[in-house]
Every structure is written in structure tokens, then in C-alpha cells.
Computed example of a mutant assay.
Amino acid sequence: MTYCVGMLVDRGLVLMSDTRTNSGVDNISVFRKMFTWQVPGERIITLLTAGNLASTQSVVSLLEERTKAPEERDNTLLTSPTMFQVASEIGSLLREIIATRQEANGIRGRDRFTASIIVAGQIRGMEPRLFLIYPEGNFIEAGRDTPFFQIGETKYGRPIIIRGYDPTMSLEDAAKLLMVSFDSTLKANLSVGLPLDLMVIERDTFEAGHERRIAHDDSYFQAISSSWGDALKEAFHSLPDYSFYQGD
């Protein structure tokens, strides 16, 4: 399983992903799920991936291959004039890869090769943008009403983000909010695991202003986890007492 989040705030984009993949309790591995391409001063594009690992790695490998010889290949990431066109091309690529694998495997492949992708980034002269691409290749864009996207194991960390999100929050607070969301997910689901990858893209910088891998021994993440647990217990005990007897 996977947990990835892309969040859009006024000051830019904050992205986070776990690195755990598993095919049963005795086959757990670590694979990176966050991938970035950039042209300094002109654009930065980051992908977060969830679902069938072979499908998502095929998408990333093909995109990476196209950047190696832009004069010879359709260099979607580095030459598309808008983030919308970037998302559209990645969606088409994902759909083709999944369809090819499903066709090769017949009925057995219908649900095995699905995947989804979060695409985030900014191109000079345009706003930072955030998209969620579905296995069918279609996609939606984040905005004021839906300012963040999750893929993978979403249910445990979603309430945290909904209650804590504010479009005017600092990038530092946005990163902290995602850490709390991930900590809640890690506590509830063993299929999501450390290390975690964090990236912050500040508006109009066209680069990863902050990039960090959060390992098991990360002191700040441990403090967040411990403090959040204590704060929840304190908040619970501060609630009005419930009585089994009417009128008490």
C-alpha cells in the first residue's frame, strides 16, 4: 500500500510520500514514489505515484528517457507550455501502459495493474498547479474547494488535513500538518511505512526549496508523533464528561 499527499497553499506546494511496498507480510520493500524534473528558473514538475509498482515505474522510466534526448523524443516534461498539457500527456501515458498490461494478462489483469498519480509543479509565468490522474488517464485539478489530493491509503490521514488546512498557512506549517497526517496513517496501517519523502516548492522559485527524507530515527518526526499523541489524550480528557444518568 501507499500514502501520498499533494497540497496547494497560497505560498506554493507541499508534497509527501511514503516508500513502502508489499506483496504480503513477508515481502516488504522500500521504493521511492516521488520523482522530480526541473529546468532551473523555468519549471519544476514532481510526480507522486501509487498503485501497481510496475505500471508507475514504467511511466516514470519513459518520462525520464524522454528527457535524456529532447531533440529526438517527445519531451513532455521539459517543453510542454502548460501544466495542464503535462498532466494530459502523463494521463495518456498511464492509460496506455495499464491497457497494454491488462490486455496481455486478460481477465487476470483487469485490476492488477491500476495506478494513480499526483502531478504538481509550476511553469514560469503561470500559477503553481496540482492534478490527480486516475488509472483511466483522466484527471482533476486542485483549487480552493479541493486544495489537496491523496492517493493510496487515504482514510486515516484525511481528517487531520481537513481540520488543519488553511490556504494562508506557512509552508512550514503545511509540512507539519502533513507529518501529523502521515503519523496518523502509520499508526493505523502497517502497509504504509517509513522512510517518508518531503518536498516543498515555494511559489515562483521553480525549484525544490526544501527536500528531506524522514527516516526511523528522525528526531523531529518522533517529536511530532509523541506530541500529537499527548495532545489528543489531553483534548479528550478536557471534553465534558458523559453520564449514563439523565439530568446529571
Rank of each mutant, 00 (worst) to 15 (best):
E72N: 08
R124V: 04
R66Q: 05
I45T: 02
P135Y: 12
R108N: 12
L177N: 03
E65D: 03
H210C: 12
R108V: 01
R66W: 04
Q85K: 14
E65G: 09
Y156D: 02
E103D: 07
R20T: 13
L77C: 11
S184C: 09
M1D: 01
R129I: 03
R11W: 04
S243M: 00
M179W: 08
L63P: 01
D26K: 08
T49L: 06
I90S: 03
L130M: 12
R203D: 09
T185F: 06
H210M: 14
I224W: 10
R112E: 02
R110P: 06
M179T: 00
L177R: 05
E153D: 03
A175H: 10
I140L: 14
E207Y: 14
F221T: 00
H210W: 15
Q102R: 11
G24P: 03
R43A: 10
D217P: 12
K155L: 14
I133Q: 01
C4Y: 08
P70T: 02
D173C: 04
G12Y: 10
I28T: 12
M179G: 02
A104G: 13
R66G: 02
Y220M: 07
Y156H: 13
L94K: 00
H216W: 06
F148V: 07
G157D: 00
V14S: 09
T2A: 02
Q150D: 07
R212K: 14
S55Q: 09
N189R: 13
I160H: 11
V9F: 08
L132M: 07
E136D: 11
L93H: 00
S92L: 03
K176I: 07
S29Q: 13
D230H: 07
L171R: 04
D166P: 07
S17P: 04
R20Q: 12
Q122E: 13
K187V: 03
L8Y: 07
T76V: 09
L8P: 12
Y242K: 07
Q38S: 15
A235C: 00
S243V: 04
S243K: 00
K33H: 06
H237K: 08
M1E: 11
T56W: 01
R43T: 07
G247Q: 00
D197P: 00
E96A: 04
M199H: 08
T168E: 12
R129Q: 13
